[in-house]
């Protein structure tokens, strides 16, 4: 359908723009806000791909939890003197540009010219049914039970680690 393509083009354009703005902004708060916009676009793209649960999680966990934490830290550190943090555009940036150019061309060639997408012309007919909370929940609590438990342990360890790291060490 042409509407779907139009929505995709719109979301992709906004996603690339916000990502570029995130990298180019001098002010870290503006970077964070651009990145939140990027996450909303990605959530829209997940909806286009019929992945409902992940679209909601993208907004709730990424735009909600993680970015609030980042903005909080930016405010906590009071980075008002950001201008002094000179971003030199010397040899390193040039090297970065060359590396990225080679890398991007390689990826685009791989994705667009080789045959990795052969036989995948349209979305699978089951696409709408696998992204629901029901089917994701069934998969996570049966086939992926061990990774799910490991993720729980990881989050637990991360919370304790973050607490210990950020705690003020008073002798």
């Amino acid at each position: 359908m042409i509407t779907e393509l139009l929505v995709f083009v719109f979301l992709a354009a906004v996603a690339v723009t916000t990502a570029a703005a995130m990298v180019l902004q001098r002010n870290p708060v503006m970077s964070a806000i651009s990145l939140i916009g990027n996450f909303f676009c990605l959530a829209g793209l997940y909806l286009l791909l019929r992945a409902q649960l992940l679209a909601v999680l993208e907004i709730a966990v990424y735009a909600g939890a993680i970015m609030v934490l980042v903005v909080f830290v930016i405010m906590l550190l009071n980075l008002g003197n950001e201008e002094k943090l000179t971003e030199r555009f010397g040899m390193r940036t040039l090297l970065a540009a060359v590396v990225v150019l080679v890398f991007a061309l390689e990826m685009l060639y791989l994705f667009l010219e080789t045959h990795v997408t052969d036989g995948l012309q349209t979305m699978h007919p089951n696409a709408a049914s696998i992204g629901t909370v029901e089917s994701m929940g069934l998969a996570l609590f049966s086939r992926f039970l061990l990774p799910l438990q490991a993720t729980g342990m990881l989050l637990f360890a991360a919370v304790i680690g973050a607490l210990i790291l950020a705690k003020k060490h008073t002798p």
């Binding site: 992940l54 990424y62 993680i66 934490l69 830290v73 990881l154 991360a158 680690g161 973050a162 950020a166």
Partner: peptide, 13 residues
């Protein structure tokens, strides 16, 4: 997404 959340917490700490 879960690992990114853990990484964000530890990294920002």
């Amino acid at each position: 997404i879960a690992v990114a959340a853990a990484e964000a917490a530890v990294g920002l700490a």
